Each structure stands twice: as structure tokens, then as C-alpha cells.
Computed example of a mutant assay.
Amino acid sequence: MSEIRPPKPNLLRDSANRIKLGVFATNGGAAFTHHPDRFDGDWETQVRIAKHADELGIEGFISASRWKPFGGDQHYSGDLMETYTWAAAIAASTQRIAVMSTVHMTIIHPVIAAKMATTVDIVSNGRAGMNLVCGWYPAEVAMFDEEIKPHADRYALADEWVEIFDRLYAETKSFDYNGEYYKLRGAINQPRPVQNRPLFMNAGGSPRGTEFAAKNADIAFILAQSTDPLKIKAQVDQYRHLAREKYGKEIQIGISTYVVQRDTRQAAEAYVHDYVVTQGDDAAVAEFIEINVANAKTMPDGVIQQMSFALKAGYGGFPLVGTAEDIANSIKALSDAGIDTILLTWTDYEGGLRAFGKDVLPRLEQMGLREPIAATA
């Protein structure tokens, strides 16, 4: 008889650290830039980064997802590896870190998603999770012989998707489902997963998206509309209040960032200017904004330039720029504003993670935001 392995904790959900950390988008890179440091995501490097992040006690390794590039055929923005097969391979290469697949619910059927997520869950022994996205890129959806649905309809479909997925994960008998978007006969998911439910992330920011995240997600990600901690706290409080009052649940709040760490703040800011302003991929970002702005309900007037800058810097993330001390202080300010989870991107992931682990993590431990890895292993 084979030995039964006790399930691993999903650290993005279960870690006691005040600030949980994840490495985001190594499966293709996050910066829109022509700078030679732009990460190209070769597999051997990704495995080294995943193992190093695991050794550092970082809680999550999260993919981005893209089916069609911006900027024309063969543009690097389309070079993102498929996220479930990627996650299974990363899970087999690591020991503790949570592994998150980003999934387009409007493209990937929930029965297929449940089977793939279960596979990752078994390979990882309970460390699997998913970043749920509705999809908003018409050319991408058209590849699947579909038309982009109106904003509200995409979230209505997503609600059904999650309901079906949860039943497939939880139930052991076949069932029928009759919804507006899905009609299933004899649906079942085998083999059985390790977790009762994988960890769900979502970054819905419109009123309808916020409601979806509050209802369905374990971690809701905000797109920071300011670097002012008080304004970030207001966004955080909005999510928490909605989740508590309408759905009777507690959720974590996360934020994505781009990290540039140097010996001086001036050197860090000069590097950002070089890869974002001097060598930024303006054409691809302009196309991204042209497609996306009409659907970006969260954006106040007059922020297109800031959005362009942040996209080129790293998927629209919050800046963690400066010395190790500057970055640690910024992370503390985010924690004080109510942020629980921070996703990290770099142009040079391998060198950036190495410097972050050497110089920033010890400062976060001294601040009481994280326990030393020896205490959490």
C-alpha cells in the first residue's frame, strides 16, 4: 500500500506572516520595454527562480496569462507559457511555495479547468491555486470562435463558472447544471483533488468586478490609484466592508508591484527612467490602453499617462523603487494601509530576487512583518 502524504499548506492562504509575498509573471515577464534586461522567461531560469523563492520562504509563484500578443504577431507579449502545465512543472520543482495558474474564465470551460487544477493540486500536494480573470481582449477571445461579452455579462458568466467549479471540486457524484451560460449533463471531476477548494485570486476593480472578488476570491487585488497610503487604505476598506457586510467573509487584499533595488534611490530612479521612458515599448502599451481603457471602470480621469508608465514598468504595478531600506519602508506602508499580499516583478527576476532576499527580507523580519524562513519551514 502506498504511503499517504499529508497535504502541504497553501502558504498564500495559511502563512501567519503579516505580509505574504509572491513572484508574479515569470512565465513571460511583466515589463513592456525594449531594454536588454527585459526578462524572456526561459524555462531553466524560471525553475531556478522558483526554487530560490521557495528557499526564501516566499509564499506564492503566480503566472500571468496571454493567448494573443499586443504589438503584432511574434511580439514578446504573447510568449507567456500556458498556465496549468506551467504550474504542474513548477510544483514538481518546488517544496512549499503555492503555485497559481491564471485562467481566463470566458475561454477555459470550468470542467476542463477543474480537471487541470486537480492535476496541479495532486502534483503540488495541496499548493495549487488560481488567479481568475474574465478576459477583455476581443482579438484574444476571437481565437476561440467567440465574441467579447459586455462587461456585466462576463461577470455573470464568471459567477456560474465558479459555482460549477466549486461543485466539481466538492461533489463526488455526477450532476446536471442548467444556467444561462452553461448547461451540463452528468458533470463530474476525477481524480479527487487534495484541497477542498484551491485558493482563488481576482483583481476585479469595477463595481461589478469588486462584487465578484468580494464574493468569490480569497485574495482580492487592487489597482492602486495613488501612492498615498491613505488612499490605498480607502480602496482596501471598500473591499473588506463589501465582503463582510454582503457575503459574511474575510478576504485578503493584495497588490502587484514592480521592484527596482539599487544602492541609492537616484540610481534606482535612473534605471526606471531608462527602461520605462527611454526604452519603453510605447507602441504595445498604446495598443493595450486603446483596447482596455473603455473597460477599465476603475480609472479616474487624467491617469492615462501614469497608466502607460506603470504598464511599461511592470503590468501596472505599484512602485517599489530605491534602496533596500526604501523598499522595506514602502512595504511596511502598504501593510499599514491594510495590504496582506504583495506580488513582485522585476526586469531581471533572478538578480532582483537575489538582492531582495539578501537585503530586503531581513529588514521585513526586523519590522515584524515576516518570520525568518527557519521559523516557517
Rank of each mutant, 00 (worst) to 15 (best):
I58R: 07
T85R: 03
E269Y: 02
G28L: 06
A374L: 11
Q266G: 01
I255P: 10
G78F: 09
H104K: 01
A88I: 13
Y169R: 02
G368N: 12
F39G: 03
N329L: 15
D73G: 07
E146V: 02
D14W: 04
Y247R: 09
P138H: 01
A117E: 12
K68Q: 15
I289V: 09
S330A: 12
G322K: 10
L132M: 05
K233C: 05
K297A: 10
F200Q: 07
V285Q: 03
G209T: 10
D79F: 09
T345P: 05
R13F: 08
S15M: 07
A243L: 05
A328D: 00
V293S: 08
D159M: 02
K231T: 07
L80N: 14
I232Y: 04
Q252C: 04
F165G: 07
D359R: 03
S174F: 05
A224M: 11
A355S: 08
I219Y: 05
G248I: 10
A203S: 15
I219N: 08
R13D: 08
P362N: 11
W346P: 00
I251K: 09
W43H: 06
F39H: 12
I373A: 13
D336P: 03
I97Q: 01
N27L: 13
P9K: 09
K51L: 10
Y137G: 00
A374P: 01
L242P: 02
Y258V: 10
Q306T: 08
W43C: 06
T106M: 04
W86D: 11
K312M: 11
M201Y: 13
N27I: 12
G322A: 09
D42V: 05
A203G: 12
V111I: 11
I49D: 04
G280F: 02
V321L: 12
R240F: 00
Q190L: 14
E350D: 14
K149Y: 15
W86E: 11
Q305D: 14
P7L: 06
D176C: 04
R154V: 11
E147N: 09
E3N: 09
G302F: 01
A313S: 02
H151L: 15
I253R: 02
G317M: 00
F70H: 12
P138R: 05
A92L: 12
A284K: 00
S2Q: 03
A89K: 08
F61C: 10
R154D: 13
K68A: 15
G205Y: 08
F61V: 14
R18Q: 10
D281F: 01
R192L: 12
A170F: 00
V276C: 12
R96Q: 14
M299T: 00
S77A: 07
Y275D: 11
V194W: 01
L344G: 06
D121S: 03
H241N: 09
T298R: 06
S63N: 15
I304N: 03
E163W: 00
V236D: 13
F309P: 00
I107P: 00
V194A: 06
G314S: 06
Q195S: 01
D340K: 07
A310Q: 07
K149C: 06
W161K: 07
A139K: 05
E290F: 01
A294E: 10
D359C: 00
T172I: 02
I19R: 03
V120M: 02
S308H: 03
Y177P: 03
A89C: 06
D326L: 02
D79L: 12
D40L: 07
G322Y: 11
